[in-house]
């Protein structure tokens, strides 16, 4: 259990006691300029070959910009397996997507991403992590906050003796973007673990998708901070910080490179609300 989660929970819960809590306002925010974004998540779906993979390159924009995605074209993208020496070239699709259909994922191998763009070279290294299966998905009614909400819990078994880190994604038909959450086994090593999601708009018949990934400690920290800073800003939240990924400009280490290069096995389950 992480402190930010508890603190935000505590704040939300307390806020629910008081009238007139929140409203949307116009705020002037500074403009830090555009930076390169590397959205490189190699996902090896359990039971598939994992050969089709996509890496997305884009530029960051102003915070309230209308168009929040500006694809980067004309870059050269490749991933090398440093254990086997295999090289995988990702082809420019002209809209920021770079794809390959010949990727070979191997558990616990180390991979290096290299990008050549605008006369600069960017690079990042990561290991491909395995993950436990999702054993069951259960549905529950959670009425703690007054209204009844449908809560989904995905269970998995945590391997004992290793410090494991997980990330989970939750896609609901009612949300325009996916929910990310992280978990580690600090307080629950070796036990049956669960990740839960709730979405108050869920109704019978909805199909939700839950994915569980095994990740590195550094990526776990990255996503944990990312999620904590996404939307909660009560007086009990920590000072927001710049996320630092694992990709760097090897010619100029001061350049801020956004995004992350990571690889992992993923177990995905589709669940119908009943």
């Amino acid at each position: 259990m992480k402190s930010i989660f508890i603190k935000n929970l505590v704040f939300i819960l307390f806020c629910s006691f008081i009238t007139g809590c929140t409203d949307v306002i116009d705020v002037d925010v500074p403009n830090g300029g555009d930076r390169l974004v590397i959205d490189a998540s190699i996902k090896w779906e359990k039971g598939t070959s994992g050969q089709d993979q996509t890496i997305i390159l884009s530029k960051s924009t102003q915070y309230f910009a209308e168009n929040s995605f500006i694809g980067v074209v004309g870059a050269m993208v490749q991933v090398t397996n440093t254990n086997t020496g295999d090289n995988f070239v990702f082809n420019d699709q002209g809209d920021g997507n770079y794809t390959t259909s010949s990727f070979i994922p191997i558990i616990d191998n180390s991979y290096t991403l290299t990008i050549a763009y605008d006369n600069q070279t960017y690079s990042g290294t990561e290991t491909l992590f395995s993950v436990s299966d999702i054993t069951t998905v259960e549905q529950d009614i959670f009425s703690g906050f007054g209204e009844d909400e449908i809560q989904i819990k995905a269970y998995f078994d945590d391997p004992v003796g290793i410090h494991n880190y997980y990330m989970a994604e939750f896609i609901s038909p009612h949300r325009p973007f996916r929910d990310l959450t992280t978990r580690d086994d600090e307080f629950s090593d070796g036990n049956e673990n669960f990740i839960e999601f709730d979405d108050e708009d869920l109704i019978v018949g909805d199909v939700v998708t839950i994915s569980l990934y095994g990740v590195s400690e550094h990526y776990y920290n990255y996503v944990t901070i990312l999620e904590n800073q996404a939307g909660e800003g009560g007086p009990f939240s920590s000072t927001p910080v710049q996320l630092t990924g694992n990709c760097k400009n090897i010619n100029n280490s001061n350049e801020e490179v956004l995004g992350y290069f990571r690889l992992g096995e993923v177990d995905t389950v589709n669940y119908t609300i009943n």
Partner: peptide
């Protein structure tokens, strides 16, 4: 405050 945003995942 934020000084920009980017699309990730």
């Amino acid at each position: 405050y934020p000084n920009g945003q980017f699309q990730y995942n």
